[in-house]
Design a binder for these strands. Structure first.
Lengths: 249, 249
DNA sequence: GTCTGCTATGTGTGATCACAGATAACAGAT
DNA sequence: ATCTGTTATCTGTGATCACACATAGCAGAC
């Protein structure tokens, strides 16, 4: 029915009176942060940073006591992560970070190429100048880490993530961004295996070449070239991981 | 570390003894069905079938008493749906099925073209003969409903969904399929607006043309043609909804 | 009549308790 | 020594209770 009038007004504004002038305009909106949201964010960060190994198991009560809350918020956070395939519950009701069989890894790579390629194309067309500059900044940070005498894999991985995410954010498509984030949540634990493989990975890898190509295409506003470079980046990084024999099946 | 040895064995088999011969091999595995899973499935079905209007609000306790359980399983099910953007919680902590602003609808259409296009391409290459036959069957059911004197929009919509999902399932990529399902979960409530627009929508729509093209390309094993036809299907259906003025913003 | 402030009701959130089932350690038999 | 059956502990699941907060309804003042 009239779902249009039913809402869309209680979304942003709470003050029904005058819009500006008084004290009302100066107080920042308080953001509700439930405990479950907090736990969810923490687990997400752990997964994205690759600080959890595939197959690693944990318990609700253990997490709860570690954080200092009851099991309830943890339960809710885990439910969300399970819905996003970032965690899984075994038939025995045990919770763990999912394994990554080769087939699943290849499927995720395929999906990533499609979705992140799309985001890249659009970002190249829609990015503001400051967003372009930010992508370029992370590209330089990554390159700088690579050229160090003793590159730190974890730091490089972080810059890599920031570079990609800055690019995808520039597409200004929130749902697409969120879906990509969900994909990274799933591959995070294995990407970690890649970047912690040792400094030689960062050195001999072709990531910096792809990154340079992406940034060049971005500055030249060439969507197709950017997409091709990004797909090459994803694909070659995947090949490296597949070439090592760390994935089961 | 050795996450490989840590598991992958307690996944499928519970019997550690001999593989066959005894009674063990004949008993079917019991599937655990938690209450939360049940509620989750129910809500999912409601959303997919379009039996919930955008903006519609509900309460945990209300749902719980309607189903006959406590609020806890409902809470967990809602958490998952929220994580998938199929439901949303307002800052006031109210739960509702999300509104669909035009921009969001267009974004989802874009993502759908990318993901469902990918699934279609692969399905055309990977589908078995029985899967091809099943897609064709749903295509005929849809066409039959369309040619009736008084087509039923809901029935047509159901056949449409079955047709698409049978196609995507034939790609044999579980994660991709799940992501597409998540997208349909989000557009379900507005797709409903489309198909309930009246019989003339089913009649004058170009869906059946696209569907026929998809099936033809599938049988001819022409992935690119199938993808093009599918994208055209998604795009034109979206245009129809956009042309009506039911979406806010 | 309109607006302000209070009150009552209902909501989500989190804690705690009870229960079914799974894992693991252990005792006994072969 | 290996295997089997038992028991003890722990884990997820669901119910129930307590609390903070939002909304709606109502009374009072201007």
């Amino acid at each position: 029915m009239e779902h249009k009038t039913a809402s869309a007004d209680e979304q942003e504004d709470g003050a029904a009176g005058e819009a500006s002038g008084g004290l009302d305009a100066r107080v920042g909106r308080i953001v509700r942060q439930t405990l479950a949201d907090q736990v969810y964010g923490d687990l997400k960060e752990i997964l994205l940073a690759g600080r959890a190994a595939p197959g690693e198991r944990f318990t609700l009560r253990g997490l709860a006591s570690a954080i200092g809350t009851s099991a309830m918020p943890v339960r809710e956070a885990v439910s969300r992560l399970v819905a996003e395939n970032a965690l899984e519950v075994l038939p025995n009701r045990a919770v763990r970070v999912p394994l990554m069989p080769r087939a699943r890894f290849q499927e995720l790579r395929l999906i990533r190429c499609s979705l992140e390629g799309l985001a890249t194309e659009i970002a190249v067309r829609e990015a503001t100048d400051v967003e372009v500059a930010e992508v370029e900044r992370f590209e330089r940070l990554f390159a700088a880490e690579r050229d160090k005498p003793a590159p730190d894999g974890a730091v490089a991985m972080c810059h890599n993530k920031d570079l990609h995410f800055a690019l995808y954010r520039a597409a200004h498509l929130p749902t697409l961004f969120q879906m990509i984030e969900g994909l990274w949540l799933q591959i995070g634990p294995v990407l970690n295996l890649d970047f912690r493989a040792g400094p030689e990975r960062v050195r001999q890898g072709e990531a910096h070449i792809r990154h340079a190509a992406i940034v060049a295409a971005l500055k030249a506003r060439d969507p197709e070239a950017a997409r091709v470079a990004l797909v090459a980046d994803i694909w070659s990084a995947g090949d490296f991981i597949l070439s090592r024999d760390v994935l089961p099946d």
